[in-house]
Design a binder for these strands. Sequence first.
DNA 1: CTAATACATTAGCCAATACTAATTAATTGG
DNA 2: CCAATTAATTAGTATTGGCTAATGTATTAG
Lengths: 109, 109
Amino acid sequence: MIEAAAINAVMRTLADPTRRAVFERIVGSDEITVVELTRGSGVTQGAISQHLKSLKQAGLVAERAQGRNVFYRAQPEGLAPLVDWMSHYGVFWHDRFADLRTLLKEIDP
Amino acid sequence: MIEAAAINAVMRTLADPTRRAVFERIVGSDEITVVELTRGSGVTQGAISQHLKSLKQAGLVAERAQGRNVFYRAQPEGLAPLVDWMSHYGVFWHDRFADLRTLLKEIDP
DNA sequence: CTAATACATTAGCCAATACTAATTAATTGG
DNA sequence: CCAATTAATTAGTATTGGCTAATGTATTAG
């Protein structure tokens, strides 16, 4: 059975456009600081920190503190619940491949 | 480039647990009416209709009116934006397969 | 024809939440 | 040191959004 709480957290976290944009920028860069994320985000630094907290709680990002900087990086495994959900309820894919996860494991064991 | 509006709609729509549950039930059944969806949903019929409206606007479900009943069915293509997004920003899968969509097309052309 | 059923829609309420502005804490450069 | 930089946190505000209750509309049963 699928972990309802995990999917809930991930979906809910990625639903907000601003927060999703933050995540996308983190994914796009190896590591990135809060100031850099704030730059051109359209919101204040405080708002960015709040979004980062949500992303962290959802398991989508990880942090590394160094000096007065905090570097954020993407935590890809955090998207696993979404993949699971897709393979279960994504009819289109489900119909074609029965189980996406199984398929992927076969390809890359 | 990815259609930001489409992803936004799909993510936002699936973020709510009640609405997602409705979608999952629709996926699970070939066709299902509003009364059936209301039964055991924990919310009123009006709420269900509202959720169905959202799901329809997001392109996730389609309807077929017959007499005084309206049958809803899943529209799998509606999840395409989510798949696209995953293949772009789902680092885990991205790293392993470069492009999930390409992979799937190779398997089932 | 009338009552009941199925569904959509609306107004109004309440909780959740994204944002700002301000504060705090920690680190570093001059 | 001291001022500046980086980041987190908090209180307060405004908006969003999901819910109910009620109403409206169409269809079917008796």
